[in-house]
Write a protein that binds this DNA or RNA. Sequence first.
DNA 1: GGATGGATGTTATAGTATCACATTCGATCA
DNA 2: TGATCGAATGTGATACTATAACATCCATCC
Lengths: 162, 162
Amino acid sequence: MARRGVIQDFVDDKHDHASCVEDALQRAEVLCGERGERLTPLRRRVLELVWDNHQPVKAYELLAMLAGERKRAAPPTVYRALDFLRDAGLVHKIESLNAFIGCAKPDRRHCAQFLICIGCGAVAEMDDPALTGKIAANAKRLGFRVHQETIEVEGYCGSCAG
Amino acid sequence: MARRGVIQDFVDDKHDHASCVEDALQRAEVLCGERGERLTPLRRRVLELVWDNHQPVKAYELLAMLAGERKRAAPPTVYRALDFLRDAGLVHKIESLNAFIGCAKPDRRHCAQFLICIGCGAVAEMDDPALTGKIAANAKRLGFRVHQETIEVEGYCGSCAG
DNA sequence: GGATGGATGTTATAGTATCACATTCGATCA
DNA sequence: TGATCGAATGTGATACTATAACATCCATCC
């Protein structure tokens, strides 16, 4: 499926999920290497679990997944890993869902813009510079210096709207 | 302080807070009356407490304020009131703060766009149709039907940036 | 007055996130 | 080698946010 403009399409059934996860991990390794940050086994594993789902995942769901393979996994275990991954730009938090999702374009620091389907839970990441620009312009008129944007749009995807 | 464009300015010290709260309550009465919805004493009081602060307020802070005057106030007491007020468009939830704030323009149904100062906690409500339009256009390209937007921009206001 | 449905009271619990301190691990260097 | 130091993780407790489930009250309408 071709990418249209700045919007990443919703994931369809045809995408090669295994390689998509692998790619994400590979990119993460490279990025952390470049930055001198440590993608430890735990952090890597949490990132992998996040990508495995390919939809927003809750912290305690991650904790449950970890529990099977890592005795003594506790809430701080997963929250710390998520904090690291978020700081690294590898994972975004979706505030309106209290859930986390892998960043589609971690190479470039950006603020996340999401379309969230109420029907099926699928999420598409947008990264529209025009949107960011408009917000920046509005902010500037108030003397406001933007640090981070949160844009979360709920609605129905093509499949669910019909 | 004059309003500039679509952006509501940050509240300054000079604004007449008492009348601003009164206005909000007055408008709420009218709106609920028109719509046949019941702005009960409890709901009215919660709305008043929200406006009193004029900044994002947490549910349990509201609960603490209520506790003094209303024995047996419990979490559902305040969450129910907030649910009603949100449905009525009188209050917005700021997802990134888990907090609630009075809607500056309840007359017209709209989705909230906020500038949030990390320094002082002040919040300004934007309502930029151009922004909404851009999002709608992006969504349409994906066959996505927008139901609700959440736009929360964190940064530093003029006072805090200096 | 009685029926009805919405609003609120009440208790309990689910779900989300962080604190504080202990321990381990890894890199560096004497 | 092993001493040291800071980062990462383990560990137990707890704070914070939100909802479930059922009871009671109350306004309205007939």
